[in-house]
């Protein structure tokens, strides 16, 4: 997101039909696990309001008798026996670790 709030953004804020509150942006930031600066938050609000205004055109459609479609083809669970088919990749996998401790990924303390 841009570093400063553009004039276009400021102009939009006064026109948007959808209003995103500071609390909502805060909450969405928690869900998204993103830490946004104050400027980024203001830009995100404007971006989201503009997108939601646009997405609201879908409300012109009567979908009350339409089932939501997640996949165009029927998708079923695919089960298989839990059999190991690949060799041990421990070293290659750990080679990608940002921080390694012995044969483990090292992370900050997780339990108080």
């Amino acid at each position: 997101m841009a570093d400063k709030i553009s004039d276009e953004t400021m102009e939009h804020v006064t026109k948007a039909k959808n209003k995103i509150s500071d609390e909502t942006i805060e909450y969405v930031g928690i869900l998204a696990k993103l830490e946004l600066s104050e400027t980024e938050k203001q830009n995100a609000k404007a971006d989201m309001e503009k997108m939601l205004d646009y997405i609201d055109t879908l409300n012109e459609l009567d979908t009350s008798r339409v089932e939501p479609m997640s996949h165009v083809f029927p998708v079923n669970n695919v089960f298989r026996e839990d059999v190991v088919t690949n060799e041990n990749h421990m070293e290659e996998t750990l080679a990608n670790a940002p921080l390694r401790g012995g044969d483990s990924f090292k992370v900050p303390k997780t339990i108080g």
Partner: peptide
């Protein structure tokens, strides 16, 4: 980030039906 934020919003409780399911019905 913009798309992750929008996606998290449309899947959040209270907005899931109005946005996500509406889009799947449109699909």
């Amino acid at each position: 980030k913009r798309r992750i934020m929008l996606g998290s919003f449309v899947l959040s409780s209270g907005y899931y039906d109005a946005y996500y399911l509406k889009a799947l019905r449109t699909k």
